[in-house]
Design a protein around this nucleic acid. Sequence first.
DNA 1: GCCGCCAATGATAACGTTGCCAACCTTCAG
DNA 2: CTGAAGGTTGGCAACGTTATCATTGGCGGC
Lengths: 348, 348
Amino acid sequence: MATMQDVARAAGVSPITVSRVFRDSTSVRPETRQRVLRAAGELNYVPNAVARSLRQARSGLLAFINTDMKNPLFSAMARGAEDAAQAAGMTIVLGNSDDDASLEARYLQVMAEHRVDGIILVPTPTTTAAHIPTLPRNVPLVLLDRRPPDLAARLVSCNTATATRDLCRHLFALGHERIAIAGGMPEVPTWLNRLEGFRLAQREAGRSEAEELVIHGNYRAESGVSAVRALMVSAVPPDAIIAGSAQVLHGVLDELAAQGKAIPADISVCCVDDPVLPAFFRPRFTYVEQPGYAMGGAAVDMVLEELRAGTTAQRDREFPASLCIGKSCGEAERTVRSYLPAAVASPR
Amino acid sequence: MATMQDVARAAGVSPITVSRVFRDSTSVRPETRQRVLRAAGELNYVPNAVARSLRQARSGLLAFINTDMKNPLFSAMARGAEDAAQAAGMTIVLGNSDDDASLEARYLQVMAEHRVDGIILVPTPTTTAAHIPTLPRNVPLVLLDRRPPDLAARLVSCNTATATRDLCRHLFALGHERIAIAGGMPEVPTWLNRLEGFRLAQREAGRSEAEELVIHGNYRAESGVSAVRALMVSAVPPDAIIAGSAQVLHGVLDELAAQGKAIPADISVCCVDDPVLPAFFRPRFTYVEQPGYAMGGAAVDMVLEELRAGTTAQRDREFPASLCIGKSCGEAERTVRSYLPAAVASPR
DNA sequence: GCCGCCAATGATAACGTTGCCAACCTTCAG
DNA sequence: CTGAAGGTTGGCAACGTTATCATTGGCGGC
């Protein structure tokens, strides 16, 4: 690998002049610049960002630590983050915690060692401030999606309360009487969010039985399965189920299929999550959509802003979720027959 | 930020001893090690990977440059790559080319500057060797998914030919007569792959009209829409459509819905792609699945192996695809009625 | 013609780590 | 008791870049 030294020698200048050419910060005579560039080209010179990072104490790297990139919500966030970083000349380095706080801590440690200039973190449900290793300098840390109770860091989140309320209103308007909501982890803010909107709509509608229709879980598919089992054996089963996440929806659909229920003929189903999966259904699914891409971008922008300003003046940023109405909860006319094999469906 | 110097002073040893403690390579007396670790703890010392990278000429970074992480196939690959990297103590840095060869080149340049130890690249359809900047040292480069015609680098790919042939056999066995395949980009190896399997099965079955049922496209949703339009106005429309990718499937489903066709009653539909999206359908979809996660891991392993051995002795690695039979192409009994609203479906 | 300013370039010394070699100490065999 | 061997530690220099300050030369204003 050619170094600045080599280029400098070949161009008949000092290394510092080569440096100036490549950062085109201060004045270099056009002729000199040409000479340097030609020499660099001939030698295949590639600036060494590692040496620059060491010297400048800025690496140009941003860490993006999330639960699991295979989750479309997180990959949308990652893509939003990457685009924003790229636009600012920064590079994203990646970590997947799988909701394991100690694995997350290990990632944070590695990122700290690599001297990333900022960190975007989707914390695990069990993360506490104690899990966050002391970060070098004052590396900006922005939380995505949720904030551990005792962690003082800014947050980019999506408040699904309003959209979930709207979803319930939509369901009531379609004539549903008993709406269940299922699958979220107790105490997790994103779940509390959904419940808030759920309860709000229930109160509006003058329903009192709401609490028996709240089924907690762990946000995974198994929660969807067990929720459906619990709900369908009750005296008065629900006529609509809101899955707390796409994973939960997966379980809900599987178990409903196993029980031979048709959607939306026998029961309506909708969910709250990123649009990628539900948007793929035909006929269209009804769901609350979180703007993952925008959130990822906003998180990076917050980090960059703090790097630029050197202060933490900014506040949290909360995005609204939006309600996308499909046909999985019936329509006014209830014309949709089934997402399920006709053999097991029982059309009205 | 505390440095080794600081820790060394606090522990009453020389910096090099601190270095040894943190790499626990060579022998350090247990007592000394304890003293160093205590001092490091008190000072919140975090080793500087940037300085180490400079000194050792190894950064511990691997680049993963793909088309778009929002595509589930690529996020599965990325996740597989990240897990394999993590297991080897390496960190993944990310790039999204959006199938733009010049953007891809820019990413490669940045990665080269950061002195990544290896590169995993999902090349764009228009990438040629000329787009690949000269890489520093001999950075291992492994291609994922497809290889530009003139680029001599190892490849981790998935051969969908056999699975696509099996898919066609399955369709013929179900009684389909005219199977169309749609959406891939002409000349792109992954598409040629699919066509190879398609043609093989057609020949086996003694069909001669195969070529008129091959509709090229650009692998995006619009290709699915236009393919359906073209196919459905022909004298003898197909009774089954194989979408070349999940995106294409999206378009196919939309246009079939617009035309009021029921699946699989009026026409069967299946696709070749990552399972994430199709696996979400209820009833289950029929598709050919590519093992994205395993491919990503394999690509990283190839890079690591080359780093370890210092040679490029390895060969390409080709994964088989697998056929997942659902109900979107009918069953022996043809009991599945529809993925579409009953209002527009025309059940047999 | 002199002074001072500015543009252009260079010399020097860091940034924090580790490879290389040397030095020291302990232990043990002869 | 001596010397060798091996375990433990340190000095020095270097990785490739850039911040800081210094130097040079040219130019215009008075």
